[in-house]
C-alpha cells in the first residue's frame, strides 16, 4: 500500500517536470536569436553549476577557482581543433579527460587542507591558470587575444551554427547530466560524499577513504566543467583568458550556494538568479552590478539555506538542530 502510494506520488511529481521540459524545448521556435542565446548560456552555466555542485555541494569543499577547469576544457578543445582540425564533438571527451587529469594533478597535494586554506589555494590555481593563458606559454594559448577560428561542432554532417541548433545540443547535454547527477546523488559514491561533508572523521572510521572521495569529486567536477568548456568554445568560436577570471568562478560558486548546495533544482534556480535575471535587467546597465551585489547579500540573509535546498541537507541540519535543542533541555545527548 505504502509502495503504491509512493508510486502515485512519484508519478504526480514527474508529470509537471516532463511538461515543463517539453515546453522548454519549444523555446527556440518562438524566441528570437538573442534570447535563444541567453538560453544557451543559461545551459552552459547550469553545466558549470552542476559540476561545481559536486565539489561544493556534495563533497563540501571550498572551490573559488572552478573557472580554471572550465578554461582547461575550452583551451584544450580550441588548441587541438585549430591545430589538427579534429572535430569538436570528438574533442569533448578529450577536453573532459584533460580537465579531469589536470584537476587530479593539482588538487591531490592540497586535499588535506582545511576549508579556508583550500579556498585560497583554489583561487590561486584559478589565477595561475589565467596568468599562464595571458602569458602564452610555448605559443599555444595566443596570449591576451586568445584562440580564434574554432570550428563549429558537427554531428553526422550536420553543423550546429545557429543559436537554435546550439540550444538543442546544449540542453540535451544538460538534461542528460541532470539525470546522471540525480543517479549519482543516490549512488554509493554520492552517499559517501555526503558522509565526508558532514563528518570526515566519522566517514573515515566507517571505512570511507575521504581523500579519495574528495579527489573523485574534483575529478568529476573538473571533467564536467571541461565539457562545458568545449561547448563554450564551439559556441563562441573564439576564446580569451578574460572569460575565465576570478569573477567567473565567483558566479559559479554563487550559483551553487544561492540555489542550495547539493541540490539539482537548486542549481537551476541559482543559475536563473545569477545569470538569467541580470540578463533581463541589462537595461539598467551601470547600476546593474550594484543591484547584483546587493541581491547576493539579501538572498543570503533571507534564504541562508538557498532558494531550493536539498532535502537531504535539510534533514541533516534539522537533526542537528534537534540534537542541540535536546542537549540544551538537559536530555542526554
Amino acid at each position: 500500500m505504502k509502495e503504491r502510494l509512493r508510486n502515485i506520488r512519484n508519478r504526480h511529481h514527474w508529470w509537471p517536470l516532463v511538461l515543463l521540459g517539453a515546453g522548454w524545448f519549444c523555446v527556440p521556435l518562438f524566441a528570437n536569436s538573442y534570447w535563444t542565446d541567453v538560453a544557451n548560456f543559461f545551459g552552459i552555466y547550469m553545466l558549470l553549476g552542476l559540476s561545481l555542485n559536486i565539489i561544493v555541494g556534495y563533497a563540501g569543499m571550498f572551490n573559488l577557482g572552478h573557472a580554471a577547469f572550465y578554461a582547461v576544457g575550452a583551451y584544450t578543445t580550441a588548441i587541438i581543433n585549430t591545430r589538427f582540425g579534429i572535430p569538436l564533438l570528438v574533442l569533448m571527451p578529450i577536453a573532459a579527460l584533460t580537465a579531469a587529469g589536470f584537476a587530479a594533478l593539482i588538487t591531490r597535494p592540497v586535499l588535506h587542507l582545511r576549508g579556508d586554506y583550500l579556498c585560497i589555494v583554489t583561487i590561486g590555481f584559478g589565477e595561475i591558470v589565467r596568468i599562464a593563458l595571458i602569458n602564452n606559454p610555448f605559443g599555444l594559448t595566443g596570449g591576451p587575444n586568445g584562440v580564434l577560428g574554432i570550428d563549429r561542432p558537427a554531428l553526422f554532417g550536420f553543423t550546429f551554427y545557429q543559436p537554435g541548433h546550439f540550444f538543442y545540443l546544449i540542453w540535451v547535454i544538460v538534461i542528460l547530466v541532470m539525470f546522471g547527477m540525480r543517479r549519482l546523488e543516490n549512488s554509493r559514491l554520492g552517499r559517501a560524499w555526503n558522509y565526508v561533508r558532514e563528518d570526515e572523521l566519522a566517514a573515515e572510521a566507517m571505512g570511507i577513504d575521504a581523500t579519495n572521495m574528495k579527489l573523485l569529486a574534483f575529478i568529476l567536477g573538473a571533467g564536467l566543467a571541461g565539457i562545458a568548456g568545449t561547448l563554450y568554445a564551439g559556441k563562441m568560436t573564439v576564446i580569451a583568458p578574460e572569460s575565465f577570471g576570478f569573477w567567473e568562478s565567483v558566479v559559479m560558486f554563487a550559483i551553487v550556494v544561492l540555489g542550495g548546495p547539493g541540490s539539482i533544482p537548486g542549481v537551476v534556480v541559482g543559475t536563473f538568479g545569477m545569470f538569467v535575471l541580470p540578463e533581463i535587467f541589462r537595461g539598467f546597465s551601470s547600476a546593474r552590478m550594484l543591484v547584483f551585489g546587493a541581491a547576493m547579500m539579501l538572498m543570503m540573509i533571507f534564504r541562508p539555506q538557498g532558494l531550493w535546498p536539498s532535502q537531504r541537507v535539510l534533514r541533516v541540519r534539522q537533526a542537528e538542530g534537534l540534537e542541540s535543542q535536546g542537549s540544551a533541555a538537559g536530555r542526554p545527548a
Partner: peptide, 10 residues
C-alpha cells in the same frame, strides 16, 4: 562567503 562576495561587488 557569498554574502561577503556580494558586498564586495556592491
Amino acid at each position: 562567503v557569498v554574502s561577503a562576495l556580494g558586498a564586495s561587488i556592491f
